[in-house]
Computed example of a mutant assay.
Amino acid sequence: MRAAVRGGSGDIQIAQVPDARVIEPTDAVVRIVLAAVCGTDLWAYRGQEEIPPGPRAGHEFLGLVEEVGRDVRALRPGALVLAPFMWADGVCPACRDGLTTSCPDGGMWGGEHDGGQGEAVRVPFADATLVELPPAVDDERLPAVLTLADVMPTGLHAVNGTGAGPDTDVVVVGDGAVGLCAVLAARRAGARQIMLLSRHHARALVGQDFGATEVLTGHGDQTRDRVLELTHGQGAQAVLECVGTQDSIDTALGLVRDGGAIALVGAPHGALPGPEQIFMRNLTFTGGLTPARALIPDLLDEVVSGRLDPAPVFDLAVDLDGVPAAYEAMAGRSAIKALVRI
């Protein structure tokens, strides 16, 4: 089969790899219909992470079950399924607590495993991992459903962690797909104000459509002054940090009010503040690796019905051969998020 393979910094190739196949009795093989390129895929592409050439790429996909192991009970060939960005066994204490990303038998697609940017994937613990989609789901809704593999639950995870709600002023740091989904999740929670940091016109427009009440385009003190103005001199009660760089973490710290909460859901590539600053300001730090499988049921009906529509984060569509160009476009910020039709 064909799949996207990392060739080093700035290099994604489409190559022949071994066919996905059932190995364990709890496995399924899923023939991919839609996949995506994620912002976290770009860290290695930009050379900001050391990854040797060869690993598979991609961790967001949905498709059709092609084959199941003998112990798979809930799924049958032909079922249309969504995969969260990590698999999990569904029975360990972490899974029972809803923290599927801490499953000791879990893992993430790609690397030495089949990646989402390919023709098929072997799925461990298929019954616990895969979410069967309603038979009547409209094909036009599938891109929106695909966001539930990662970016939409991650936005929700940020909002849930801070407790943002109707009386909350929210700042979103990051205008990528996760940041935009965090705006949508904050609107869903009824936040009083949603301030999005963005200096990119196309992304700002999506953010406004998703519910941002203010787009902050300034730098440094300009942004802080505007947030203080909008929050009567206090700062935001909830800051959703959706990037993970040192600059974005520092920006979040500068915009949150004392006693407020910061959700860190961007893949971290910066140092967290020292305990003294957190202590003296009574700050709450939350977030982390999103347990997407546990959050998908809260969102699925709304997305399938169209009441919640994250699909506009996809502003580029390619086929499998177009994946290298999609990485280039996203790294150059000429695309927010690429949809891959297999």
Rank of each mutant, 00 (worst) to 15 (best):
R2W: 04
S9F: 00
G10N: 14
I12C: 09
I12M: 10
Q13M: 13
Q16H: 15
V17K: 06
V17H: 09
I23C: 11
T26K: 08
R31I: 08
I32S: 03
A35I: 11
C38Y: 07
Y45A: 02
Q48E: 15
E49S: 12
E50A: 13
P52A: 14
P53W: 10
L62K: 04
G63N: 02
G63S: 07
G69F: 03
A74H: 08
A74N: 07
P77H: 02
V81M: 02
L82H: 01
F85I: 03
W87A: 00
W87Y: 14
W87T: 02
D97Q: 15
L99A: 12
T101W: 05
S102G: 02
S102A: 14
W109V: 03
G111I: 08
H113A: 13
D114C: 08
G115H: 08
G116H: 06
A120N: 08
V121K: 05
V123Q: 04
V123S: 05
P124R: 12
F125H: 15
F125A: 09
E132P: 15
E132M: 13
A136D: 15
D139H: 14
R141S: 12
P143R: 10
P143E: 12
P153D: 09
G155M: 08
L156V: 14
H157V: 13
G161A: 09
G176F: 01
V178F: 04
A182M: 07
L184H: 05
A185M: 11
R192T: 05
Q193C: 04
I194V: 13
M195R: 05
R203F: 05
R203P: 00
L216E: 01
T217V: 09
T217E: 11
G218R: 03
G220Q: 13
Q222G: 13
R226E: 13
T231Y: 04
Q234S: 13
G235R: 02
A238K: 05
V239G: 00
E241W: 02
V243Q: 00
G244P: 04
G244M: 01
T245C: 00
D250F: 00
D250I: 00
T251F: 00
L255W: 00
V256Q: 01
R257M: 06
D258M: 07
G266L: 01
A267P: 12
A271Y: 07
M280T: 15
T284K: 13
F285W: 14
P291Q: 12
A292E: 08
A292Q: 08
I296D: 09
P297K: 15
P297D: 15
G306R: 11
P312A: 10
P312D: 09
V313Y: 01
V313F: 05
F314M: 07
A317H: 09
D319C: 09
D319E: 14
G322K: 05
E328R: 12
E328N: 08
K337C: 02
L339D: 01
